[in-house]
Design a protein around this nucleic acid. Structure first.
Length: 416
RNA sequence: GUGAGGGUAGCUUAAUGGUAAAGCACGCGGAUGUGGCCCGCGGUAUCUCGGUUCGACUCCGAGCCCGCACCCCA
């Protein structure tokens, strides 16, 4: 037995049914919002990811050399490729550009619940927006996907990293300060601020870091009234625009810092508490593409979802996924009827009725068992008695009802 | 990368250091004119390597894998 590589999974038909459901909803909702799907390669030159996320990421990537001695990496995320695609070609498309994408990503990490070495992401970007309306649109899309999937318990957390960036203006290393804030290293922050002559901002930053909740915006405004009022007001406007339109349940976190350095404005995350330590299913924010890969200074908003975690949440909420089982199972009775059964099957399939047939010559009882365990909704018996009257017998597997139907009318009856 | 825990058949669970057992699932038959029930039969397992022992599923060590938490999280 050759083992499956660590952190990877095989998906059974049942599991794929769930994953397909999630993907179908994602595509349907994204399409309905005017986003268009794109796709990029599963591997890229390593430097693309290093440019975006720093040299440390090499430790967590699958890196290899190809036969031309090029250094490549399995993509650890989708966004870097999408940005490359944008800078390369998509920049000439009409703005705003609304795109989404879906696919496997790879990270060399220790697996745990909701975290795998091969995992699947869904992401969307709105390029060339940068207004309040585009931020609203992106949060709206994310929340709509969550709702349309049928996820019941989730929490939107919303911040504006512009507030902290404004307070830290003049610092010798803004991104390092932000890192100190997320990791809670306030001593390091304090000495950095002192060195940069920004100690007067320290109190406000520490207070902001503690503020989390629905009704805290007044306090936020008071804290930053002289430094970043405009950014605080933006967060407030965003909250107002979302309330009554997207969701009323917003947790504001003015000091939310996402892992990436490049976010400049609105940032948001969506949590589902079922997932334990890895409870975040979505994260995103607005950024300026130019600061990441060069090119024009163009404002964008994007997000990424963990597809595996969406499936996990639905499973833990005991969501009943729609079944992809066949509509009809055809059972020939007796060797002589097999050819007729094939004809019936052909007609059904040509009319778009998903159907299956006995292939191994089992008796009617065993065939009903099989149809049952495959979840077929109806069974069509092709037997001599009915066939002599140009009919077949249709059985409803839920109610057990059975009626004879003329072969000519079979498609009509089953389409109802 | 760190920590504590776990690994017997496809799944769930048995077996003082002494014959590896069962239920479900799967396959065949009862049963080529009617399912969810029933009956009979069948195949499949101690994660791997090493050690202790007359003898290891059981004890010890290492590795692999899994779930959990930390770290990280693009």
């Amino acid at each position: 037995m050759v083992e499956r590589p660590r952190g990877t999974r095989d998906f059974s038909p049942k599991e794929m049914e769930k994953r397909r459901y999630v993907e179908d909803v994602i595509r349907k909702v994204s399409d309905s919002f005017g986003f268009r799907e794109i796709s990029t390669p599963t591997f890229e030159r390593s430097e693309l990811f290093i440019m975006r996320s720093g040299p440390e990421v090499v430790d967590q990537m699958y890196v290899f050399k190809d036969k031309g001695d090029r250094e490549l990496a399995l993509r650890p995320e989708l966004t870097a490729s999408v940005m490359r695609f944008f800078v390369d070609k998509l920049k000439n498309y009409p703005k705003p550009l609304k795109i989404y994408y879906l696919g496997p990503c790879f990270r060399y990490e220790r697996p745990q619940k909701g975290r795998y070495r091969e995992f699947f992401q869904y992401g969307a970007e709105l390029v060339g927006g940068g207004s309040l309306d585009s931020d609203v649109e992106m949060v709206n899309l994310a929340i709509n996907v969550v709702k349309r999937l049928g996820i019941k318990s989730f929490q939107l957390r919303l911040g504006n990293i512009g507030i902290l960036r404004k307070l830290l203006e003049g610092s010798s290393d803004v991104n390092e300060c932000l890192k100190f804030i997320t990791t809670g290293k306030f001593d390091d922050l304090s000495s950095r601020l002192a060195a940069d002559g920004l100690s007067d901002k320290e109190d406000a930053i520490l207070s902001l870091a503690k503020l989390k909740g629905h009704d805290i915006l007044q306090q936020v405004k008071e804290l930053v009234v002289n430094d970043a009022l405009e950014e605080a007001l933006y967060l407030e406007s965003l909250g107002k625009a979302l309330t009554g339109y997207v969701t009323d349940d917003i947790q504001f976190e003015p000091a939310m810092v996402r892992g990436l350095d490049y976010y400049t404005g609105m940032v948001f995350e969506i949590d589902c508490w079922e997932l334990g330590a890895e409870r975040q299913i979505c994260g995103g924010g607005s950024y300026s593409l130019a600061d990441v890969l060069g090119g024009e200074r163009i404002f964008s908003t994007g997000f990424a979802f963990g597809l595996d975690r969406m499936v996990l949440v639905l499973e833990e909420e005991e969501f009943s996924f729609p079944s992809k089982a066949v509509e009809v199972y055809v059972i020939p009775i007796g060797e002589a009827m097999r050819e007729n059964a094939r004809g019936v099957l052909k007609t059904l399939r040509e009319n778009g009725i998903s159907s299956d047939v006995d292939l191994i010559g089992r008796g009617p009882s065993k065939n009903l068992d099989y149809a049952n365990s495959m979840g077929a909704k109806k069974v069509v018996f092709v037997g001599e008695d009915e066939w002599s009257k140009s009919s077949v017998s249709v059985k409803n597997m839920e109610t057990g009802e059975q009626t004879d139907v003329l072969v000519d009318q079979l498609v009509d009856v089953l389409s109802k």
